[in-house]
Design a protein around this nucleic acid. Structure first.
Length: 167
DNA sequence: AAGCCCATCCGAA
DNA sequence: TTCGGATGGGCTT
């Protein structure tokens, strides 16, 4: 598998944006570019990974621009390649159908997939989401209204939800 | 095939 | 409010 990636600066900090030939496969947030690259290589150990300059890659450039908008709070859509098991893909697809401003509990999401007892498994799948913000796993919270967890830090989850609530 | 980890949930004390 | 047990998917022995 071929993966190309670049790093951009956004309202949420640095973002590593990576794509296969089919679409975006990883969007990771952080403040250390080296760590972000290492993380990407760890996630796709067998892939052929190459760094590209922002804007110099015809495939990546327009997608990166779109991602930048979305990370900065605007709505939008990009083509993605969800790399994971069948179950994970179902969960991630379902996440992308949740409109901004709306939240669901892990149990509600499990229910909507026809697996009402799989709340915990759904949580696992959310935890493995690689496409920050674009696959909006931050819209899933606990049944009691508390935030639950977030891979890129709970404060960020809170920020994202606040930002969508007003819009 | 068995065991372990986990971004949960629900009921009981 | 805390605590156990049920729970299911994914990964490692």
């Amino acid at each position: 598998m071929q993966i190309r990636w670049t790093i951009i600066e956004t309202a949420l900090g640095l973002a590593l944006v990576a794509a296969t030939e089919r679409g975006l496969c990883s969007i990771a947030l952080g403040d250390d570019a080296t760590a972000l690259e290492a993380e990407l290589r760890g996630e796709f150990p067998k892939a052929d990974i190459s760094h590209v300059q922002e804007g110099r890659d015809e495939f990546l450039a327009p997608r990166v621009r779109e991602v930048a908008c979305m990370l900065n709070g605007r709505s939008g859509a990009v083509d993605v390649e969800l790399i994971g098991t069948a179950f994970q893909q179902r969960v991630w697809q379902a996440l992308m159908k949740i409109p901004p401003g709306q939240t669901l509990s892990y149990a509600q999401l499990a229910e909507s997939l026809g697996k009402p007892s799989a709340a915990r498994a759904v949580a696992r799948a959310c935890a493995q989401n690689r496409l920050a913000v674009i696959v909006p796993c931050h819209r899933i919270i606990r049944g009691d209204g508390s935030l639950g967890g977030y891979r890129w830090g709970l404060p960020l989850k809170d920020t994202l939800l606040q930002r969508e609530r007003v819009a």
